[in-house]
Design a protein around this nucleic acid. Structure first.
Lengths: 252, 252
DNA sequence: CGCGGAGTTGAGATTGTTCAAGGATTGTGG
DNA sequence: CCACAATCCTTGAACAATCTCAACTCCGCG
């Protein structure tokens, strides 16, 4: 296996040295909003020009927006929605990726308040509430929130009906697809800055078994992995094999 | 074990002989709407007086409201939200109980269109779209829809982090709680008109293992079961043991 | 009375977990 | 520059949980 993931998670494909403040990160958000399938396409210039101060979430484990729970854009880094469990364990419900929209819409009966959003690497986020006055942007954001919920169905399918091999493959395919939609992939190669234990928490499997499953995927020629990235060279075949279809494709 | 479930599922605690048309069933819906936690309590008389024609869903397996996907109240019988899977298998995402609200809110970006709502027993439902003009009722319905989504989190916790024993116990506790909220329980006793295979589809376990787990629950003195019903005599202790807390309790 | 559906039970095969140890990489402080 | 700690990855072996297959029972129904 080639190389290790550097312990400083922030050092990703999309990052140059002290890049988190760079303007280009908002481009990911623009593409994500565009992919949401809302009727009117949002005013992209307005998003690109968002001038709210960036917030750097230094360390993994920090809770995002504990106090101010407004809508934020994720510019860089990975997080998750989770719930703590007895004995230091926890359940992960979803991964949060660069370009994603997180946080609560004010005065919206929103079930997400029952979950914690937590950083899994260093992250950069930016407050986007000022943009929500614009109807087109608010619509696009709402569309993305529906997609996020829709993805829970896939999570339930994985946990309920798949074995370890299919679970891992299915989740990696999701991560690949989500990044491909906003142009973050390099051919079959996509970002994965997390450890195997995180995959375990997400898929309800032990870290050891995650490792064995990844090895099997590698042996089958489906997976390659390195420091901070993975690659699914034959992802179409794999998607067919494990019954993956992005159920949040839009429209159905 | 005491008795078998009669093969005609419709014959439940709440049913007398040809009861599905009886007016009293709407009382369950009223209580359910009241339990939703919306700000203003809905106009209950209006709900009780709902005069739309009942629709009898004869047989298990029939899809509810394939054509007209408006909001409906469930007066009697059980159903589920599911997605079909290759090889005749399927995933169940949630059970639908008497008193529940199902169906799509028109013009709402709603992820439920990605699922099928299917009858698991004979059911009686009634179109409720005419009531949605009332703001108070619409609010209560919206609140219930959020709760339904919230319950998916529990499903993910069960599948991802519990063993068979805890999964079954946790689900039965949910079913007990949901029925208790609207006064459908008789002490520790609640309705369960489904077969063990349905529990298996819901919890990602084989029917055989469901049976063995139910036996263990019975041996531990937690569970009693008969034709169409179950009882959780020591449900507080059981809830503590498996970490059950109705995460859709309102407010948090 | 025999049929069909659901519940029940046992035995063996699979899958995944736990415990424990070793190896590689990176960052840190002397 | 090197020793060391920390973190993650890797591997093996024993163990536990769950599945599959197959038979058998019980009951209601026609």
């Amino acid at each position: 296996v080639e190389g290790r993931r550097p312990s400083l998670h922030g050092r990703l494909m999309t990052s140059s040295e002290n890049a988190p403040a760079r303007r280009g990160y908002l481009e990911l958000v623009v593409r994500r909003l565009r992919s949401g399938g809302s009727m009117t396409s949002p005013d992209e210039a307005l998003v690109r020009g968002l001038s709210a101060p960036r917030r750097l979430v230094e360390r993994a484990g920090q809770i995002l927006s504990k106090q101010d729970k407004g809508v934020h854009f994720v510019l860089d880094g990975w997080g998750c929605q989770m719930r703590p469990l007895a004995g230091g364990r926890r359940v992960l419900f979803a991964f949060i990726l660069p370009g994603d929209v997180i946080g609560l819409i004010p005065d919206d009966g929103d079930e997400d308040r029952l979950l914690d959003s937590v950083a899994l690497t260093q992250m950069t986020i930016v407050d986007a509430t000022s943009l929500l006055d614009r109807v087109d942007i608010a619509q696009a954001v709402a569309g993305l929130r529906v997609r996020n919920r829709t993805r829970l169905f896939d999570q339930i399918m994985r946990l309920g009906r798949h074995n370890a091999y299919d679970r891992v493959a299915h989740l990696l395919l999701e991560l690949y697809t989500r990044q491909a939609e906003i142009g973050m992939v390099d051919g079959p190669r996509f970002l994965f800055p997390l450890g195997q234990d995180r995959l375990g928490e997400m898929l309800g499997l032990s870290e050891v078994h995650i490792h064995r499953t990844l090895s099997k995927l590698r042996a089958d020629g489906h997976l390659a992995a390195g420091a901070g990235w993975m690659a699914l060279s034959k992802w179409r075949a794999l998607a067919l094999q494990v019954g993956f279809e992005a159920s949040d494709a839009w429209p159905r």
